[in-house]
Design a protein around this nucleic acid. Structure first.
Lengths: 239, 239
DNA sequence: CGTGCTTGCCTTACGGCGTAAGTCTTACGT
DNA sequence: ACGTAAGACTTACGCCGTAAGGCAAGCACG
């Protein structure tokens, strides 16, 4: 109701701005997404946008969240569909389940090629992004993987799917105080994994992600796989 | 001699500018690398730089090439050192050799975290970059891998090491006419691989890199490796 | 029925970016 | 000694994100 009320006098909405921003970036690339061009497309002056979003970074963050909503829809659409709330389903292999989720994400990202750039440039992901990762963590956990291995897996897969430019950062994170509790609301599996991984680290609290270790883990994964495929060319996906 | 001659009247050199640009980007990040700041550090006005390099992209390209020279030095330094031009050396496993090259590259990139961004944003690599890849191709080829598999491997490793934001591009390349001959001069193994891979493609000339195929190949590599490590936790690198 | 406040958009302006165009200075070759 | 050209400087343009404030429309309230 408030929505319709406002619509009579304000044609600008947070959601509308974000949708326009996504369309603009899709069409003209990230460089083409400027405040002035965005406002132009909305039939408005640039500064008017600032009454709905505080700055350009907020637009980028919001657009990313919108895209993760799209990924969630795509993931759901490509799921095998369990109509009733059945108890024990056939349970596909965890790797197939994870692969399906990642391929769904990729299908969406192909429509928004600028997303990995923004993802790389900016820090904390929003709730939709957390939910997406949470689904992957859940699928792996259901498959019996230990949180420790899941953690490594996320690093290895992250750089491939979302284009994480690699963890060339050293920082490690040191997530703020109440963050874990808040994360648990929206992404319980991810939060559980983080809690365990952080706890296991003897140095605790700081530097809980050793970038070098993660890098070498992913590298070994790839090299091992290549060795096996070189030894036995009949292995699945050498096409 | 010309170098010293010029030095008396021109303190600015192409090489000096590139080195200053690298230092500035290392110190203040890619955003801190502006023409004005760069000129300032060189004790000069911004526009003076344009007498030695045509534009900022040329500076970035040149800096990247300089970094790949650094990678070459690091790779050489970390090599097991074959003093005399011996014929048949013990020949380490190809995956160890490739791993060593990639880790050497990473060591250098950690000193220049902005490099993957530039690498992602810009197109054709220079000769030093080509030589680096050529070394990896050579190591794999010596290990008996088929060019086809090597090609897939490069895609899979590229996104991890150099942060290729993934091949979210669709374009495929269609390398220009004389490019292959020119590439053969500096990177014969890479050129040989390209020649064969391009030739094998029934559609030839255009779209010789199927991004979806490459993506799924790399994804399967990772998932397979994770499955194996989940099944047998004693496998090497789960730390 | 005013009247004043809030909301939403617009106008203007600032500092910083890459760089096009033109000017001055300097040191060399003759 | 002097013309010349290379190399640095000056100025200026059109972009960018956004700070500061103006102005009109609709609502709450006397």
């Amino acid at each position: 109701m408030a929505e319709t009320d406002r619509a009579t006098r304000s044609r600008l909405t947070r959601g509308g701005i974000l949708r326009a921003a996504i369309a603009l970036a899709d069409e003209r690339g990230l460089d083409g997404l400027t405040m002035r061009a965005l406002a132009d497309g909305l039939g408005v002056e640039a500064m008017s946008i600032y009454h709905h979003l505080p700055n350009k970074d907020a637009i980028l963050d919001g657009a990313i969240e919108e895209v993760f909503a799209e990924i969630a829809a795509e993931t759901l659409a490509s799921a095998p569909a369990v109509p009733n709330g059945a108890a024990v389903t056939p349970a596909p292999a965890w790797d197939a389940a994870v692969g399906a989720r990642i391929l769904a994400a990729r299908r969406v990202l192909l429509r928004h090629p600028w997303v990995p750039w923004v993802l790389n440039a900016r820090g904390a992901p929003g709730p939709n992004a957390a939910r997406h990762v949470d689904g992957i963590v859940a699928a792996m956990h259901d498959g019996g993987l230990a949180y420790d291995l899941i953690h490594h897996a996320l690093h290895a897969l992250g750089s491939r799917v979302y284009g994480y430019v690699q963890e060339l950062s050293d920082d490690g994170g040191e997530l703020p105080a109440g963050a874990l509790e808040q994360l648990a609301m929206v992404a319980p599996n991810l939060a559980a994994m983080l809690a365990e991984v952080v706890h296991d680290d003897p140095d605790s609290t700081l530097g809980w992600c050793d970038d070098q270790t993660e890098f070498e883990f992913g590298l070994d994964l790839l090299l091992d796989g290549l060795v096996r495929r070189a030894a036995d060319p009949s292995l699945p996906p050498v096409e």
